[in-house]
Design a protein around this nucleic acid. Structure first.
Length: 683
DNA sequence: TCGCCCCTAATTTTT
DNA sequence: TTAGGGGCGA
């Protein structure tokens, strides 16, 4: 025994095997509640302490910043004094790895990108696509820009570039559509280059492309990593799969950790087959199944096991409950959605009386609007709650506005950000003016800023327009100049907001409380810039990473509250008591998933929900649900009968008599027959 | 150009 | 129900 083997003490045999595995490919199937994070962090610790691997030769890839941060924390506790640590392992998301790499090497691609490229998020991307379509005279009514954007993303995630798109997709999608997407994709990509911008998918795609080049710097960077760990491997898309594969080469010291039963992001390009086929990709892979569940009481786990066994596309395995028996799953048949919410209130109060903290309770739902009614009743009964992941901080309009100003200042070619601030706060530069300037820029193949700084390039502007444009250019130029020498970024932003009369604009556009919220958000942003503890004179460092960090709630004080969240965002979390509401066909499984025959992912979603619970699960449904302004007659979820009866404990609640509502709803033309079935919805 | 009103569509979310 | 976008009149 080595003195470093203290790391192995608190691991079970399977976990220990995963931690001790040294070189070569390793697949760790980590069921819910099996101690996955512990295995990953211990494994890194063990590589360093036992095998003497230099920490900076280890790369750990995650999906979220949160997961990466958590790993860093746990690892800090783990790597006790002893060896000088030097540079630590690289722990981060796929995207941040790509972004960092590209900032250093993107110019090697020689396509006009430079290290100050802007990273566009999903919202920006949609706008960019829309603008591109306008330039191409493609109707944004006939073709939904969001849909085109997601098709482009889909292609990028499959590493299909604009030049390959047509050939790759020919025959797979409708010819007409193919033609449109092909054109938009090419032009969109050309625009990104011109604007020195990338979207999220490009961070991966361009990284993969660059790694394929023989450039010595690139190869040195790549060879720096000797051991690779990938968390949540079931969520990788093709680009991420290839990226991991390339980075692992040639030694293939790659350890992937994941659970095919928790793959719930197929709709955004994640490909379960990456994990299902790992053993084919790496024939000499060692496979370890972490099947011991430390989290849930037996009834919960038996229910979850039974449910998920109905999936066909999965590795056959079962979680083994280590915890004791417990209470059965309560199924509540509510009279209507109000009755359902009151059931929650009642049960939560009961738990509370038994000494349960509210923070140990979660209410999970399939679609966000379901939270409304619940919130209403929780408020009414004075139960504190928190919506986990509402609108993300960096997606708020006011934050995007301010960031857009900062981006334009550091990268004026960023047309998209420029367009965002062009007339906000309003300065009399309307859509027509913008359109005209953009058309000039487009015609000459240059960025809008280039045209703006030389208005002669754009002949047919009225003198009034010219004056206003010049004023705008002077404004931006003023800020650009301020960033040339030494300056205090926080002061710059404060001055800018003051000069722009940005707060006044907000006050003008929103009611008092909303404007106040928004102003506070801007103040919060300034606080974050301050906290970022910038090197003297650079906003750039802050802007570089800001697009990749959407974790909001770091700064909010977490009191003792019930958590309300979607099933998707519950992944990776655990609570003592879990309520899953609207356990109804059409909602879970969702109607659209049923229509598109994607039941298995819905079942996994349900599985994820159940396995969040440590002590007890409550399922509720109603055949009388008011949602989207209509009343629906839903059936209980088909998943209910996939859970053995003996694990269930059913109850029914009263509801109002809805037959009388028929007359009332007849005033609404839409609902003349009272209740509707999901089947009829949008039929 | 601005602002209001009407219409429509409505999973899931991270980067 | 409600948010967001487009159309239209001032």
């Amino acid at each position: 025994m080595n003195s470093d083997d203290y790391l192995l003490e608190d691991l079970n045999p399977e976990q220990r095997k995963a931690v001790q595995h040294f070189q070569g490919p390793l697949l760790v199937l980590s069921g819910a509640g099996s101690g996955k994070t512990r295995v990953i962090t211990y494994r890194i610790g063990y590589l360093v302490h036992h095998h003497g691997v230099a920490p900076d030769r280890i790369l750990g890839l995650t999906f979220t910043n949160k997961a990466a941060d958590e790993m860093k924390e746990r690892l800090a506790e783990l790597l006790p004094p002893g060896k000088p640590q030097g540079r630590g392992p690289w722990l981060g998301t796929f995207h941040s790895l790509g972004a960092n790499f590209l900032r250093e090497y993107v110019q090697v691609l020689d396509r006009g990108y430079n290290r100050y490229f802007t990273i566009y998020d999903q919202g920006d991307q949609k706008k960019a696509v829309k603008q591109t379509m306008k330039e191409l005279d493609i109707s944004t009514e006939e073709f939904n820009p969001g849909m085109i954007a997601s098709m482009i993303n889909g292609a990028k995630n499959e590493l299909i570039g604009p030049d390959e798109y047509r050939d790759e997709k020919a025959g797979k999608i409708d010819d007409y559509m193919l033609e449109i997407v092909d054109r938009v994709y090419r032009k969109y990509q050309a625009n990104l280059r011109e604007w020195n911008g990338t979207d999220f998918a490009d961070l991966l795609r361009l990284t993969v492309e660059l790694l394929g080049l023989e450039e010595p710097g690139v190869q040195r960077w790549k060879d720096r990593f000797e051991f690779l760990l990938v968390d949540e491997y079931q969520d990788t898309n093709h680009a991420q799969y290839v990226l991991a594969r390339e980075l692992a080469r040639p030694e293939d010291n790659v350890c992937v950790v994941g659970d095919d039963d928790q793959a719930i992001f197929g709709w955004r390009g994640a490909d379960v087959s990456n994990i299902l086929e790992f053993e084919e990709d790496y024939p000499d892979a060692v496979v370890i199944n972490l099947s011991k569940n430390y989290r849930s009481r037996k009834p919960i786990l038996r229910a979850a096991n039974s449910l998920i066994s109905n999936n066909r596309l999965r590795k056959s395995k079962e979680m083994e409950p280590l915890r004791d028996e417990g209470e059965s799953i309560m199924v509540y048949h509510a009279g209507d959605e109000t009755d359902e919410a009151d059931f929650l209130v009642q049960e939560i109060n009961r738990l509370r009386r038994d000494g349960v903290r509210l923070g140990e309770i979660a209410i999970l739902y399939r679609v966000n609007p379901l939270s409304r009614k619940i919130e209403e009743r929780l408020v009414k009964h004075n139960i504190p709650y928190e919506i986990v992941r509402g609108t993300r901080f960096y997606e708020r309009k006011e934050i995007k506005d301010v960031l857009a100003y900062l981006r334009v200042i550091t990268n004026p070619d960023d047309d998209l950000s420029l367009s965002r601030i062009f007339n906000y706060p309003r300065r009399g530069l309307g859509a027509k003016t913008e359109e005209r300037v953009q058309a000039c820029a487009d015609a000459q193949g240059v960025s809008t800023w280039e045209v703006l700084t030389d208005l002669e390039k754009c002949p047919d502007l009225t003198s009034r327009q010219e004056n206003q444009l010049e004023e705008f250019v002077d404004l931006i130029r003023g800020y650009i100049e301020k960033t040339q020498g030494d300056y205090d970024p926080v002061q710059l932003v404060r001055d800018m907001i003051f000069d722009l009369e940005y707060f006044e604009q907000l006050e003008n556009d929103y009611d008092v409380s909303s404007a106040e919220d928004r102003k506070n958000n801007v103040r919060e942003l300034i606080g974050q810039i301050q906290e970022a503890d910038l090197e003297k004179g650079s906003l750039r460092e802050f802007l570089e990473d800001v697009a990749l960090e959407s974790d909001v709630d770091e700064f909010e004080d977490k009191g003792d509250r019930v958590s309300l969240l979607t099933l998707h965002s519950a992944k990776g979390l655990e609570f003592k008591y879990v309520f899953i509401v609207a356990f109804e066909d059409g909602i879970l499984p969702h109607r659209r998933s049923v229509e598109e025959s994607r039941i298995e992912e819905e079942r996994r979603l349900c599985y994820v929900g159940l396995t969040r619970a440590k002590e007890r699960v409550f399922l509720s449904y109603t055949d009388n649900r008011f949602l989207y302004g209509q009343r629906f007659g839903n059936l209980v979820s088909r998943f209910l009968k996939e859970i053995p009866d003996e694990e269930l404990n059913s109850r029914s609640g009263g509801g109002r008599d809805y037959s009388s509502l028929r007359s009332r709803s007849s005033s609404s033309k839409k609902v003349s027959t009272g209740k509707k079935n999901w089947k009829d919805f949008l039929a």
